[in-house]
Design a protein around this nucleic acid. Sequence first.
DNA 1: GTTTTTCTGCTACCAGGGTTACACAGAACG
DNA 2: CGTTCTGTGTAACCCTGGTAGCAGAAAAAC
Lengths: 244, 244
Amino acid sequence: MTLACSPSQHAVDVKALLHQSPLFAGLDDAVLDEMLSHFRRETWKQGRQVTGQESGQRFHIILSGRLKMAQINPETGRMVTLFLLQPGDGFDVISLLDGQPDPLIFEARDDLLMLSTPMQEARHWIEQHPAFNRSFLPYLGKQMRTLANLAGDLALHDTETRLARLILRHVDDEQKSGPLRLTHNLSHEALAEMIGSVRVVVNRQLQHWQREGVVVTRRGELIIKELEAMLKKAMHFPKHTSHQ
Amino acid sequence: MTLACSPSQHAVDVKALLHQSPLFAGLDDAVLDEMLSHFRRETWKQGRQVTGQESGQRFHIILSGRLKMAQINPETGRMVTLFLLQPGDGFDVISLLDGQPDPLIFEARDDLLMLSTPMQEARHWIEQHPAFNRSFLPYLGKQMRTLANLAGDLALHDTETRLARLILRHVDDEQKSGPLRLTHNLSHEALAEMIGSVRVVVNRQLQHWQREGVVVTRRGELIIKELEAMLKKAMHFPKHTSHQ
DNA sequence: GTTTTTCTGCTACCAGGGTTACACAGAACG
DNA sequence: CGTTCTGTGTAACCCTGGTAGCAGAAAAAC
């Protein structure tokens, strides 16, 4: 998956997209069609915020755009991004699993195009189609890994390491070679939320790296000049980090 | 579930135990028997450490004792406890889901009595018994919630709040009224790992509370004198915190 | 009972990173 | 095309919470 946002054309080839998605890759066309008949299209404009309570009644599958799934501290107003969901991802998976509403905030980072269906319907469908588990369970595993790594990082590593890792995680996805220009379209604020820190700190760090000549930063993009150096900063990279 | 450790008698009534477990509560006796026939008993002595690589080949169900599931920073030697698994819990669920080994450390906090079976067998069994999903999926949801809350807490709250919450979470499980004596049998070190901090800080905090007259601490136990005050320290308690 | 190990209480120290504040650049929007 | 809003660069400040170290208490091991 990539951090880059897909253009949200309305003529998206839904089935092609789902076939690539980790959740539905394995399903054959007939089953996919049957499933799609239960879903309807839904669009959110960039910036739209919804709480777990509100969105908790329907299960969504992202077709284009990115969705921030975050936790908030009402006292300070600070946020952490737990997931930055991509096309092919579903939400809210946790509510889907246990039926409880999530005390989370969902925010469209881009214009979103999604499929949605009532939670109850989604659960029922899953029950009827055990084959779906073949991709669903591994998908859950990946999500849990991502969360576990986030928690581990927050507790064990400093902000520099966390930021370096966040960046390198996206190198994996984008082009593996070349000049390593990452266009994430994320503000420093957004990056900060993803590593559980604050804008000023992210900026400070990027500036520092820039002076070292390790990276070059622009609005919404970042060029890695010295991959080796970055890897060193992200040291002790866990072997099986989520590649989401 | 409770933090107190069950005595690890070897004459445990396995089926009775599994019926109470969130994972197997819903299954009828016949299915349970069939499942048990695939498992064998396994015991670990308190303090035994195993990496995800090593234990990754078998899936375990805890019958008695507690198991720490932790991430480590090899550079500093510090650890975070992601889960403190209890009787009725299974591990490693993440590996079970996606087949990848976990870069985690498992450590027996008490003497452990478990059931275990090859991962492949467990996966196969799950596939054959869709009814199991009725309890398995909600269980996964609860685990994910726990992780999400941990990550959120680490990013958004100070150590005092995190420690207060850790303690109060166990009040829910133990007796709800009375003198609120919690016997957790955990060292300050262990508590620290559970909130992503260090021994000194936990001690400092507990001592502080003790001087305030809010709690009284002893080895392995803690008495809450002023529940109201504690609740205040844990302020902004998320509505749907895991009650694991 | 004695020794050894593990826990606990406490202190001194200091640095990472969070808070606040402000000026400027670049987008967005009418 | 000017106004408005959002994002970026940077500085001063300082407090939480982490590191290091040690002495005594309590368990565990012998």
